[in-house]
């Protein structure tokens, strides 16, 4: 008998202007990255209501990635500044509740950073593998 391998499910919110293009570049450059990532495109990373992230965790995804433009490069000038503060607050909320805040990660990925996107997908998947299944699953 082989033991079942834990295949994490990871939800990634990608901003339309940078990170989604970065993911696209990783694709057209034929970079290999884990198939654990499920992408949702949003117009800006600050469109990601913290409620979306909690809802995703409650629906059983094992990790959530939020990606946006580098600070100062937001298509909407300042959207990612709000995202940063929200994600910090959300991670603290998870910590207080007893959920490992490492399950949520915010990263800045520009349209030209296909390799960086693939690297983040790789390392985040490794982190989630180590953390194991989401304890909120089914909640």
């Amino acid at each position: 008998m082989t033991t079942a391998v834990f295949r994490p499910k990871i939800l990634a919110f990608l901003c339309n202007w940078c990170s989604y293009a970065g993911a696209d570049l990783a694709g057209v450059s034929r970079l290999q990255y884990p198939s654990t990532i499920r992408a949702i495109r949003t117009m800006c990373s600050c469109r990601v209501n913290p409620q979306f992230i909690t809802k995703a965790l409650l629906m059983g995804v094992d990790g959530v990635l939020v990606m946006g433009c580098h600070p100062g490069e937001c298509h909407y000038i300042e959207g990612n500044m709000y995202t940063r503060r929200r994600v910090i607050a959300l991670k603290k909320m998870l910590e207080v509740l007893g959920i490992n805040p490492d399950r949520v990660r915010l990263e800045w990925v520009s349209a030209s950073e296909g390799t960086r996107f693939a690297d983040i997908a790789e390392s985040f998947t490794a982190t989630i593998r180590q953390l194991g299944p989401n304890p909120l699953r089914g909640g």
């Binding site: 580098h70 600070p71 300042e78 500044m81 709000y82 503060r85 929200r86 994600v87």
Partner: peptide, 14 residues
Amino acid sequence: LGTFTEEETKAGGV
């Protein structure tokens, strides 16, 4: 959660 500082726009990290 509805504001940010000038320094933050220059900081690169998360």
